[in-house]
């Protein structure tokens, strides 16, 4: 546990000493702010639904950029060798990096609470969907971070890691909008696979155990996949 915290601290510190963290956060805020508020007043409703419906697509771009370096950079520099010969286990390294990425995503989401505060000043904002939305956003961020970590463990090239993670996250975000292309037989499985589907359930303020189970199990699968890939390097 101590080792995990130590790795989390180191990874978070290395995010925030470089300008990339601030650039990613700034881009995220500008893009979400722009897309959300450009149509917000047309609906004439005090809700954050527009913001949360944007999140899966935007996080599909942003999270891979955050996670791409986690393993690739270490493999490329050779510092992974140094890391693994410290008295840490591989599981601790994976969890440490995962928690650091998730922490970064949470830090990135925190400024958007201002949107909720602003809107609640303008009208009667229902807190349920907002809280649900943020819980969903953290779960979704966790899933994407795990996918990004997995992609990063596959290659020593950060750009390839980014593209693989982007492709998987994109697939998970868009699959339930593409369902009409698919044959009937696999329809229900594919719609269950879609992250957007489960996220929008939670973002409506409905906490269903199936949706929680989806995020937790998918995140676990991605992390376990990472473990297997990294193990293979030995």
């Amino acid at each position: 546990m101590k080792q995990i915290l130590n790795i989390v601290r180191k990874e978070l510190a290395s995010y925030f000493v470089s300008p990339i963290a601030y650039i990613v956060i700034a881009i995220f805020l500008v893009v979400t702010g722009w897309f959300f508020f450009s149509t917000f007043f047309l609906y004439n409703q005090a809700s954050m639904r527009g913001f949360f419906s944007l999140l899966p697509i935007i996080l599909s771009f942003v999270v891979p950029a955050v996670t791409m370096k986690l393993f690739s950079e270490e493999f490329n520099r050779g510092s992974y060798e140094m890391l693994m010969t410290l008295p840490v286990t591989q599981v601790e390294v994976i969890l440490g990096k995962f928690v650091a990425a998730l922490g970064f995503i949470v830090v990135m989401l925190i400024p958007t609470v201002v949107y909720a505060l602003t809107i609640s000043g303008m009208g009667d904002l229902d807190p349920g969907p907002v809280l649900g939305g943020y819980l969903g956003a953290v779960l979704l961020g966790g899933l994407f971070a795990a996918v990004g970590l997995f992609a990063s463990s596959l290659t020593r090239n950060q750009i390839i890691a980014f593209i693989i993670a982007l492709a998987i996250c994109f697939f998970l975000s868009l699959i339930d909008k593409m369902l009409f292309f698919l044959p009937k037989g696999i329809l229900s499985i594919m719609s269950y696979l879609g992250a957007d589907f489960h996220f929008s359930n939670i973002a409506r303020g409905v906490l269903d155990s199936r949706d929680l189970l989806y995020f937790i199990s998918m995140t676990f699968i991605a992390l376990y996949g990472t473990h297997l890939v990294v193990q293979e390097r030995k």
């Binding site: 290395s14 000493v17 470089s18 520099r77 050779g78 510092s79 060798e81 140094m82 008295p87 840490v88």
Partner: peptide
């Protein structure tokens, strides 16, 4: 074993930003 061992890999791969 890692606890009682210190290792310096070739070319000392360190974290340049730290």
């Amino acid at each position: 074993i890692k606890q009682i061992m210190g290792y310096l890999p070739e070319n000392a791969p360190l974290y340049p930003e730290m």
